[in-house]
């Protein structure tokens, strides 16, 4: 992997994306009425044009990447375990999404706040816990009572 340039990889991704669009995504997921006489006016034209331009950009990236000196190595995090923390953050996001309709936005946000604070190894755990309770409640008060947004309440505890 040491000899692959970042630009080449990005170009490769662009080419794969363009090919996927041209051969799979556009034929299957873009619908055009049968009575369109000119291709240029069809709903298919713009996605195909963009896919072809993406292909050209991808080829350009691969070509220039061959001559680039930039390497693929990521910048190391100052604190080890960066990838692990990112994976945990992804899990927090998934649980957050899943919890919104069931637990309600306020309670899920409290849990997500606390989990994220401990994930970034807060040096102020008490402040973080107080904020985890207060901030979601304050935001609920503003959005539900001032802005008139129907904040999801969940199935367990309902707020006024």
């Amino acid at each position: 992997m040491q000899n692959i340039h970042r630009q080449t990889i990005i170009g490769g991704v662009a080419i794969l994306l363009a090919l996927f669009l041209v051969f799979v995504a556009i034929p299957n997921w873009v619908y055009a009425p049968s009575n369109v006489r000119k291709l240029v006016l069809s709903p298919l034209f713009w996605p195909y044009a963009l896919a072809l331009l993406t292909l050209l950009v991808g080829l350009g990236l691969v070509f220039t990447g061959m001559r680039s000196d930039e390497r693929l190595e990521p910048d190391p995090a100052e604190m080890p375990g960066g990838f692990f923390r990112l994976a945990i953050m992804a899990v927090i996001m998934v649980i957050y999404m899943a919890g919104l309709p069931r637990l309600g936005m306020v309670w899920t946000s409290m849990l997500a706040f606390a989990a994220t604070a401990f994930l970034v190894r807060t040096r102020h755990p008490k402040t973080a816990l107080i904020c985890a309770i207060v901030i979601p409640l304050l935001l609920y008060a503003f959005f539900a009572h001032v802005a008139g947004v129907a904040i999801p309440q969940g199935l367990l505890v309902r707020l006024p």
């Binding site: 957050y96 919104l100 936005m105 946000s109 997500a112 706040f113 606390a114 989990a115 994220t116 604070a117 401990f118 970034v120 190894r121 807060t122 040096r123 102020h124 755990p125 402040t127 973080a128 904020c131 985890a132 901030i135 979601p136 935001l139 609920y140 959005f143 802005a147 947004v149 904040i151 999801p152």
Partner: peptide
């Protein structure tokens, strides 16, 4: 503290986008 800022921004994003 970052340990409060990061989750605070996350919660703000979620409320804001939902609204």
């Amino acid at each position: 503290p970052r340990g409060v800022l990061v989750p605070g921004v996350l919660i703000l994003c979620v409320y804001g986008v939902f609204a």
